[in-house]
Design a protein around this nucleic acid. Structure first.
Lengths: 369, 369
DNA sequence: CTGAAAGCGCTTACAG
DNA sequence: CTGAAAGCGCTTACAG
């Protein structure tokens, strides 16, 4: 009785066949196996309690079935939801998920990137620190890369990553939320942004400004605080008295802002209205419930998985939408015959379909939830 | 110019040495390398852009440096924090983390368990669905196992998992929070428990009851709802009018309960006081701020890592505490000489040091935050 | 201090 | 339909 875990050879011996056959049975191919032998093998597997060694399999195949998710903060509800959704999706496909939390530290992010590379992940989903975006690293990264955020001015060279994809449009989400506030008639608008030096702070400011300009108004106060509850709480102290409505760059900030306002006996939305982006299921349970642009994490996870697993990394929306946005993706690619060589640049956008979920924080429906 | 990723052999060729030497350099052993050769190798690594293949390394070593975390809900703030803390800790040790979200589904949990086993994880951290606890699976699981929760009546057979550890004492956390409420003078106490059939719901009920009995009071209403915001929200409808104080089994429930009370124009703590367990950084930003028993995720992660990485899986607290609880762990083990064979059962408890963090929801300090 | 070679547990042409 | 054997990229005794 050996104490070490049984290998494929043990199973083969037990079944009285070769180990190749065991492989064929386990993998349903690539060679056929007679029903009788198959049964013997299956039986031997059960008797030995054999569990395949995926490490060895990966080495032999030259490709692993694990993927990596690298985000800035696993404790951020939106990213936590995203992680959960992606884990579920990958699990349903028999894949496994490695996670990394960069905590907004660029060097940590780089180390994580390399660590995943050493682990031979087949693909990477990235929500990044953006100080100097490690574009070169991402462009040359082995395997498919899906970038969830990608600030303006940090475009990928189309030549480079033939497997790189772009993702969410954060400025558009900011615009949507802000436009809704403006629809209420508020004129003096402030933004709770992230740290001043971060590019994705500016990205959201950009969307906020766009909404304001489109309505002929003037942008108001910009408050730079961390993307945390504490940041939002501080923003409540910093916000000018004449501000009528505030856009928060994420749910944690909104949460902290609400707490800060309550602490100062200010009413939301009566004294100041509030809307945010990247809301989650929790938004409905804040006090007052939070109006926020939300993304469907499950939907995004589905789309990510589609890109990640497609062998050539090409993204194609199988949905029915096609012209919801001007100047769409894939437009520059002529309809070449599919049977051709994969001469695509591979760049593409995953449309994310942000949706405004109404709560009471903006001043809508004072009556019901 | 080859397009495939460079291997150790490529580096060796480039450096004009054998591949063994490259290994020695990379791994700082196990054989010494002359400074000169070392430099040549390092140079070759840089020139080729070589990144070691950890998959191959794992296969050769027979042990991987990835660990798995399996929880019931990654979107639960406490578990999200736990995930983050563990990721950080493992990263600092050069290890990598696989995550699984069972979503309280026992069969999903089992599949995840096997999937991790196929990935050859060196250890598993488990916060589990507990319907029928898969004790056998956990006891025979290859590698070290750390169980974060472990309901009463589901003890491990001491003979079995010589590498299995027990974790948090959830009933004690429930007791602490409830005892604090009682200290305020509340007499009619309700509990927002998890789903009726789950063992860890009962675990928390047990602690809640203990606190009540210890004060000579009678347990009051038990409300069974999911461990979610929605669950807590529903609890606000279900709670009896005469209840003076409520203990919530987790932060999400507390959050939902607060929203539900606000919706019904009931004041917390004036109409009903509230305290919870497994609070997080978010607790301070609820309205009113939540009094909750909290665990230090970082501290727990440190301890977990200690167990996970210790070769023989033995747990030893290096801290200065030793007799904070009666009938401690490791007591049955006579002080055998360390140089002996590892004849230990391996069972042990990681003390988690729950701490009560005071907010305003319980009725303390109505003045300040 | 350095190198040739076997072995980790799989997969998969290739030959029966 | 089945099996012997090479190969995936490492590690590490074992000889020099």
């Amino acid at each position: 009785m050996v104490t070490r875990r049984p290998t494929r050879d043990d199973v083969a011996r037990e079944a009285g066949t070769s180990s190749a056959v065991v492989s064929y049975v386990i993998n349903h191919g690539p060679r056929p196996v007679s029903e009788q032998t198959r049964r013997k093998v299956l039986d031997a597997i059960r008797r030995t309690g054999y569990v395949p060694n995926n490490i060895a399999k990966s080495l032999a195949n030259g490709t692993s079935d694990t993927y990596a998710l690298l985000v800035t903060d696993l404790a951020n509800p939106f990213l936590a939801q995203m992680t959960k959704a992606l884990e579920h999706k990958l699990f349903s496909l028999g894949k496994t998920l490695l996670v990394g939390d960069s905590s907004d530290d660029p060097s940590r992010q780089m180390e994580l990137l390399e660590s995943f590379q050493r682990q031979q992940v087949s693909g990477l989903v990235w929500y990044g620190v953006d100080q100097p975006l490690p574009m070169d690293a991402l462009e040359t990264y082995p395997g498919t890369v899906v970038m969830l955020n990608q600030p303006e001015g940090q475009e990928l060279s189309p030549s480079a990553g033939r497997r790189v994809r772009l993702g969410l449009d954060e400025s558009e989400e900011a615009r949507m939320a802000t436009a809704h506030l403006i629809g209420h008639g508020y004129q003096k608008l402030a933004i709770i942004a992230g740290p001043r030096e971060r590019l994705n702070s500016r990205e959201r400011i950009r969307g906020w400004k766009r909404a304001i300009r489109e309505s002929g108004l003037e942008p108001g106060q910009e408050i730079f605080v961390p993307y945390t509850c504490q940041g939002g709480y501080e923003a409540a102290e910093l916000v000018d008295d004449q501000v009528e409505a505030v856009f928060a760059s994420n749910e944690l900030q909104a949460m902290g802002f609400l707490a800060g306002m309550a602490q100062r006996d200010k009413k939301v939305p009566d004294d100041v209205a509030l809307a945010a982006m990247n809301g989650t299921d929790q938004s409905a349970y804040l006090i007052p419930s939070l109006t926020a642009v939300q993304l469907s994490e499950d939907e995004i996870a589905d789309k990510i998985a589609k890109v990640l697993l497609k062998p050539d990394g090409a993204y194609q929306d199988t949905g029915d939408d096609g012209d919801d946005k001007p100047g769409g993706y894939e437009t520059s690619v002529a309809p070449t015959n599919r049977s051709d060589a994969p001469v695509r640049t591979g760049l593409g956008t995953i449309p994310a379909a942000p949706q405004l979920v109404i709560g009471r924080s903006c001043g809508c429906s004072q009556n019901e939830v």
